[in-house]
Structures are given as structure tokens and as C-alpha cells.
Amino acid sequence: MSGPLLLSVRGLGVRYRAEGQSVEALTGIDLDLHARERIAIIGESGSGKSTFGLALAGLLPRGSEVSGSIAWPGLGAAPKPGKDIGIVFQDPGSSLNPVLTVGEQVAEVCRTHLGMGWRRSYARAVELLDRVRLPSPEGIVRAYPHQLSGGQRQRVAIAMAIAGRPRLLIADEATSAIDTVVQAEIVGLIRELCSADALALLFITHDIALASGLVDRIAVFRAARMVEIGPAEEVVSAPSSPYTAALIDAHLGLDAA
């Protein structure tokens, strides 16, 4: 299922520094990710999941301290966000620029990373919108975000994320703000795109059930540390850490209710 080593993280630590205070957001994270491998990061709020994604993409805010190493043997160079890594964020309502057309927001990625002119970038944007299963993409390129539904906006965000032909897709709670039916469609779309484009996936979520159906491995974060990592079925059926077990119980309890 997975290919050569894409990414190797060793002893990664991140500290945020804000107004004289310093917050330890991650410590001692080790992780190897192979090409085409899908991995989920689960954990409670504030455990450092988003920080991990941002650290991989080199998008941490200025003033944050990073220790340890992040190597990209599969790339041979430091990754460029947008080109080597595509990211989809949580809230599709606020993560698109409200005053630019959907087409421009997708096309600007092609123009920046694929060296295309505007005309070709827009043509490529139509193709991408079609790939993420948006109806009549020729019309949608000219639409503004407020004219789309939440699910449609998230499809646009995915189109932007894959527009630079990345090797790794990071979905940071990409389905948390969407209702359940659309959620399943988006997860299906992500799965399909990853297979078709041979993308590796880092799927950050609260929802362990959703994750287990999608990914090869699951990593569990708690209070800045990785408490457990293993094949998806194993982590779900026989968690090695009591925290993971509690997380699964809580989730099942929620589903039963």
C-alpha cells in the first residue's frame, strides 16, 4: 500500500512564545511517513495536532521555537507549502477569501507553483473543480465563496490544496464543521484523490471512527506528546494506552446516545 519514505520526523518539539509566556505545544515526536501512506492524528483539543501539521508545512507563526528534525528524503529539499504539501483547514466558511472568485483562488496556486499563465491556470482550475465533483465547474469558477454551500466550499478548499500537485495532503479537521452526510462524501473524495494522485495523507481529526475507515495508521496525541501509534485496526480494537481506550469509549458512548 505505501511506497518509499517521504518524511521522517525525529524528536520534534515546538514551543509557542506569546507575550512573555511560552507554551509547549509538542515534545519528542517521532514519525515516519511513506509515499501514498495515510495516517490519522487524533487527540483532544489543544493536544498539538494542528501544530504538528503546521510544523511539517513550515507554517508555524513567527516566534515559535522548533527543536528536533524534520527530514524529507522523498523530496530531497525543504518542502514548499502549496507545492509539495496541500493543506485543507477546518472551517470552510472562513478559510476562503470572501472577495475573490473561487476560480482565482484555485488558479493562483497553479500560477504560483506550476509556472502557468493566468489563462492556463483558470483552465486548470475548471479541471480541478470538476475533479472535486463540483457541478458545472465552468460556472463555479466565477462564483464567490458566499454563493456556495459549506460542503461545496470544502471541495473548493480541497481543489486548492491539490492544485500544486503536492505529495502530501494535510486535512486539519477538514470535515468537522460539516454535517454528517456531506462529511462522508468529503472523506470519500479525499480517499479517491489520494489513490488517484498517489498522495500521502495526514488526516487530523477528533473522530476516531471516521479516521479508522480511511487511514492505514493512527497516531494518538495527548498534551503535546504522541502516546500511541499503530495500524488503524490495531489501535481501535486493542489500544495499548488507556488514554486511547478512553477516547474510543467516549466516542462509542457518543454514538450510542
Binding site: A57, L59, K80, P81, G82, K83, G86, I87, F89, D91, S94, S95, L96, N97, P98, L100, E108, V109, T112, H113, A157, M160, A161, A163, G164
Partner: peptide, 22 residues
């Protein structure tokens, strides 16, 4: 501070474009 600026940075756009166009 808006979310869509974080998106623009994640898309790897040139700083100039983020400042002016976004």
C-alpha cells in the same frame, strides 16, 4: 488574523500577492 490568510500562506503564495491581493 483571518483564517483565509492562513489558507493563502498554506497555498505558498508569494508574500507580495498575499499582501496586495488578499
Amino acid at each position: 488574523r483571518m483564517d483565509f490568510i492562513r489558507t493563502a500562506r498554506a497555498k505558498g503564495l508569494a508574500r507580495r500577492r498575499i499582501v496586495l491581493r488578499h
